[in-house]
């Protein structure tokens, strides 16, 4: 089942250029922009490898992953209800500001699911 994220709010969050929600098998369940299969597969694989590192460090899940790029269009990956949410950041946005905004949205969706 697709995570109960407020996609409209996510889409309009300052600093979000585009987003992708992918299942653990790499299939796309939601996106703001078109994505090649290679990209969605890579996002899922990165998330799964992130979880593998968590388990090596004695934890069950990671908070987020940042793939920093020279172009400043960094990619942020968050685990969300059995899926991975990947955010393509606007080049001018600050990663440190964007992460709490996205985290707040994810926590809001969790609260909605529990209601």
């Amino acid at each position: 089942m697709e995570p109960a994220l407020d996609l409209e709010k996510l889409s309009s969050t300052a600093g979000v250029k585009s987003y992708y929600i992918v299942k653990h098998d790499g299939s796309l369940v939601g996106a703001k922009a078109e994505a090649a299969t290679e990209i969605t597969q890579f996002l899922a694989l990165s998330g799964l490898n992130g979880e593998a590192i968590c388990s090596l460090l004695g934890h069950s899940r990671f908070n987020h992953m940042i793939l920093s790029r020279q172009s400043k269009e960094s990619i942020l990956i968050f685990p969300v209800e059995g899926h991975f949410l990947a955010i393509m950041k606007e080049p001018g946005a600050a990663t440190a500001d964007l992460i709490p905004s996205i985290r707040e949205l994810i926590n809001g969706s969790k609260a909605k699911t529990m209601d």
Binding site: L57, N63, H64, M65, I66, L67, S68, R69, Q70, S71
Partner: peptide
């Protein structure tokens, strides 16, 4: 142009 990967756990 990927520079680095950071994982927060």
């Amino acid at each position: 142009d990927l520079k680095s990967v950071q994982l927060s756990v």
